[in-house]
Design a protein around this nucleic acid. Structure first.
Lengths: 216, 216
DNA sequence: TTATGGACTAACCAGAAGGTTCATAACCAT
DNA sequence: ATGGTTATGAACCTTCTGGTTAGTCCATAA
């Protein structure tokens, strides 16, 4: 009997590639279905490898989830660290920061969904991603610097809390993405339509600047 | 042989009570764990009745979920319809509306979580709760009325879109509740501390009013 | 009294889902 | 080449879970 065995697909060993592929597939699946809604088999099916590899590299479903979460926060950190607002005057710098925040959320709904999912789980897994807290220091420091300079120049009100302001900004940017489905159902509006995107971008920018302006 | 039977717990038959009890238990469980994270057995255990009754009254896990969701939106509708802003001047009325919205979200984190969960599922179940869309007309109409009057009196800018404004307001109110766990982890702040609550309440109110003020 | 139908229950089931076993192929240093 | 380590794959196992079956209980109307 001749050798009828299928030519064994040349197994290429590439740990990094395999890890990446799992992480990418998991991101999609978790962002789409949430932690408990996601299926490990489904994630495996999305990758070129097998379920076994998920456990080999990440230990458990939750381990994988935590890894994805950490990865996720890395992205926005990079985006924010990239901009150099030191050269701009406070008002222009603030405007720029709001716009960047708005644009990042609009461009990365998976990030928004992952954070929303993590909040459903009371941010339990953030514990296992300790370096996440770091990145936010960057934004807060940038914000504080802008506020200080603006106050000195008399274009911003004094005693604004940077964290509160950050929440005001990212709150709206986050909300319009995280809640776009219910909003769409209820108001019958396509929030991704360019006209609405532009209007929202202008609204949050101007609202923030209006609020910061001294002598209300 | 004497009658050793335990006194049979007098089974009280009360369909409404049973339904309510299931709905309450389900709300807790769904808000806590999400749709797929919630366990029907767990919900049953929280009630005085059994799992079978859940299927008897609601047909399926998703049917129960949809029922809870609808119930949920009912609450905020009532709260908003209760206030009569017609007698207040536009600025005071707007301030009041923002404050009510803020307070409602702060007081009802379960509502916030249910909506967040529903968005993870792309608002798929809102289809089965058709009367939900109604309630929002109320807010939008109230808002539009305030905006019109304010514009006529020259205290608000013209051509403000009521839905956009609604999003600006509820966006922040929603976000500080929906994301409080990740925010807490990252900034190490207890967002429920009275000082922060008060600061946030003032911030969103003033930001909205500042933005609405004419001649930016 | 008895019959009727809504309210309720315990036990069960099939399939799904997370996690594991064991064999083995590819790679690398010697 | 060779021995040991890392990476990979297919099938398997166990537990859980949504949903069902088959039947009991009880208030009321006839």
């Amino acid at each position: 009997m001749p050798d009828t065995a299928l030519p064994p697909r040349p197994r290429q060993r590439d740990p990094d590639q395999t890890r990446r592929s799992i992480l990418d597939a998991a991101l999609t699946e978790f962002a789409e279905k949430g932690l408990s809604g996601a299926r490990v088999d489904e994630i495996a099916a999305r990758t070129a490898t097998t379920k076994r590899m998920i456990y080999y590299y990440f230990g458990s479903k939750e381990g994988l989830y935590a890894a994805v979460l950490e990865e996720m926060y890395g992205g926005i950190r990079d985006a924010e660290q990239a901009l150099d607002l030191g050269s701009l005057d406070p008002v222009a710098g603030m405007r720029r920061l709001v716009e960047i925040t708005f644009d990042y959320h609009a461009a990365h709904p998976e990030f928004v969904r992952m954070v929303a999912v993590e909040n459903i789980h009371n941010a339990r897994h953030l514990e296992h991603a300790p370096l996440v807290a770091d990145r936010n220091d960057t934004v807060i420091r940038t914000l504080r610097d802008l506020l200080d300079r603006g106050e000195r120049e008399g274009v911003f009100r004094p005693r604004i809390d940077a964290v509160d302001l950050h929440m005001l900004i990212s709150g709206f940017c986050f909300y319009r993405i995280s809640n776009r489905h219910t909003l769409q159902r209820i108001f019958g509006r396509d929030l991704t339509a360019p006209a609405h995107v532009a209007a929202h971008r202008r609204m949050i920018t101007e609202a923030v600047l209006a609020w910061l302006r001294p002598e209300g």
